[in-house]
């Protein structure tokens, strides 16, 4: 049933993010093509300047809009599909509540990955073409230099820890944060359902209250680390301490994801009260 739910969720979720990604792709191609032609050499022309300004502004706006669009879609889709009249359709399907929730999380996560990849490729694409244009070395040379730099970085160590380990940690942390962000939205909406009236307002209040609580929690957790950094020279901190810090950060974010997942499942199965 999860597969079927994923298919339906993908169909229902994808329209707005797909449009945002297409707009980003078009703007990226336009910007890249300006570096491939003699466009920037005609800067004395006011219309060219105006066009260049507008296209760069549109591009920056679009980068922000893609992320914003996916966050909004995650919230709206979850609320509308489960807690409005559409909930009568979804909650009477012969599926487990956990599958219902998982389908929402996985599709939102997939779209986030697609959007981050799209944004990275877009910026990297423009930067590589612009870099090649400015240094006048050509794209092939630009990529060669980039990968040489990356290889050098991989051979280095960071506080006696190999840099690839640091990269692995960063990737794992990003994955945890990816799910954390989605579950955070879902949790706030589920908390909003606890309010008798003004459930959307309740979700918004929950968003800020939870944010405050999590920040406080993070602050408390990082006090020991900041003490260490304050009293000791950074170079004196052992690789073991860094490893422990990295491990704890993963554990905390991962743990919070699990707590939020079970809270949402509980709310959707044991506390469901569709109006």
């Amino acid at each position: 049933m999860l597969k079927k739910l994923l298919k339906q969720e993908w169909k229902g979720f994808s329209l707005a993010p797909a449009i945002a990604m297409i707009v980003l792709a078009v703007l990226t191609v336009i910007l890249m093509s300006t570096f491939m032609t003699s466009f920037w050499e005609q800067s004395s022309n006011i219309f060219v300047d105006l066009f260049a300004g507008l296209i760069i502004l549109a591009y920056i706006f679009c980068l922000a809009a893609v992320s914003f669009c996916i966050t909004i879609c995650t919230a709206v889709r979850f609320y509308k599909n489960l807690f409005t009249d559409e909930g009568y359709l979804m909650f009477t399907l012969p599926v487990k509540t956990s599958d219902l929730l998982l389908s929402k999380i996985l599709v939102a996560a997939l779209w986030r990955i697609i959007s981050y990849t799209g944004i990275f490729l877009s910026i990297f694409g423009i930067a590589s073409v612009a870099g090649a244009y400015i240094s006048d070395t050509g794209i092939v040379q630009f990529f060669r230099e980039f990968f040489d730099l990356f290889k050098e970085l991989l051979d280095m160590t960071w506080f006696e820890l190999p840099v690839p380990l640091f990269f692995i940690w960063l990737i794992l942390l990003s994955i945890c944060y990816l799910f954390f962000d989605i579950l955070y939205i879902h949790t706030c909406i589920c908390m909003g359902q606890l309010f008798r009236k003004h459930k959307i307002g309740g979700a918004i209040i929950s968003y800020f209250v939870l944010r405050f609580v999590f920040r406080l929690f993070r602050q408390i957790l990082t006090i020991p680390l900041s003490d260490v950094l304050w009293y000791y020279n950074l170079d004196d901190i052992s690789s073991g301490t860094w490893l422990l810090t990295m491990f704890i950060s993963l554990l905390v974010i991962g743990g919070l994801c699990i707590v939020m997942y079970y809270f949402c499942t509980y709310q959707m199965s044991r506390k469901l009260n569709l109006d």
Binding site: G87, Y88, F91, T92, L272, L274
Partner: peptide
């Protein structure tokens, strides 16, 4: 609604 699991 309770028979259908829409209300607890």
């Amino acid at each position: 609604k309770m028979i259908n699991g829409l209300l607890v």
